[in-house]
Nucleic acid binder design. Sequence first.
RNA 1: GGCCCUAUCGUCUAACGGUUAGGACACAUGCUUUUCAAGCAUGGAACCCGGGUUCGAUUCCCGGUAGGGUCACCA
Length: 452
Amino acid sequence: MESIRVRFPPSPTGLCHVGTARMAILNYLFARKHGGVIIFRSEDTDKERSTKEFEEDIVEQLHWLGLEWDEFYRDTELIDRHKEALTRLIADDKAYVSEEEGKKEAGTVVRVVRFRNPGREVTFNDVIRGDISFDTTELGDFVIARSIDEPLYNFSVVVNDGTMNITHVIRGEDHISNTPRQILIQEALGYPRPIYAHYPLFLGTDRSKLSKRTGDVAVKSYREQGFLPEALLNYIAILGWTPPSEQEVMGREEMIEEFDLKDLHKSGAVFDIEKLRWYNRHYLQAMPADLFEAEAGKILKESLKGRNIPFDPSIAASLVPVVRERIAVWEDLRIHAQEGEYDFFFADPASEPSRIAQKGVSAEDTVRHLKSVKTLLSEIPADAYSDPEQIKSAVWEYAGAEGRAAVLWPLRYALTGRERSPDPFEVAHIIGKEATLRRVDFALSQLSKVKV
RNA sequence: GGCCCUAUCGUCUAACGGUUAGGACACAUGCUUUUCAAGCAUGGAACCCGGGUUCGAUUCCCGGUAGGGUCACCA
């Protein structure tokens, strides 16, 4: 077979959505697998709805996902070849100019170009679905151009695909019903028929076509929420495709290696954000520590600033493992940070006296425990705080003897001022000996107030 | 409504006539160094219905039902 040529033909009438991304990903994997050429073609035929901004967004988001292409075109810049084809069709009497009432404004007369439909059955083979047949007589002499200068989508794609020697048309099944009329035009123009593969659409949670109504669809919005491109790429590719290895987590190269159109599914799949989050957590775990630290630090710093809490980069650095196991998406960290979940790492908490004691444990016992713990913690050298295990072993025997909850809860609360937090040893390790002892002292002073 | 497509746990899926119908996400319970998170273990959870074909159908065929897509001078 001659070399493979595929296309990404988004229409720039909206932000890049996950459906656009999927179309690009599937074409990309296929082309790269076979060493083919990828053509990005902005289908801006509809001048009223198409904008430069949308086109830029699509290009930007696809690049963000790590996709590339070899050639770039805009449909409107291809008008000469559309006109040539249209003229030829009319000259051959395969299309004709028709004067009729304008649909947009009643009473006006327009001259549209209609395709002379031979009216026969069209059967085409779809790699994913097998043979599909349509009786095209019901289509009638459909309109292919508003005027000689304004070709319509179904006409211009055929000319574009034909003149660009596209060999494989891989697109969503919403185009199945366009295929027979495109084939008719294609045959009238004498272009070879490409190989078709129509994959099913992503579904929203209500099982209808995924749209703004049924879920978040803009790639940009996932990006802003802090999803990683690898995660989105992996999830979108795998949803509706089972590679031979049946692996779910795969990087780009691995996916290219395994890709085959035949393995695409025939039925639609619900786009599940929970599973996407799971993928994202996975890729966040795999992220190099320094990159993770940079991003996490940025978010923490920004959040702390709003509450006038001093940011300490070295503390932020040691927070990497703590944060890493608590978030699936960067947005989670933003929310947690905003709720003050990490404030105590950077500034002493204002412990509520009434919450220091573990439920059911008296203030007297709690004071006794905290004092003992303080002694134990002050006896170990400051550099032992570099290892949470050493802190733990200093206190562990005592806690075991007196009741872990009774001892450890007040310690943890004294250090964090929160009902929920990482364990006290991890916290002590991060804030260091000095702050640890200071916070225990403060809790003790708070308790003395409540005792009266 | 016409035409086209589809049909396994809540969701994503495996199975290519014979399986205790497998896995992942989510969920529930338990465990681990109080709480939270993570991790680990365990558990509940599916073959749309009816006819055929066959010794035997989740699997093949037909019909029904349900869901989706599409019916523009949008793409």
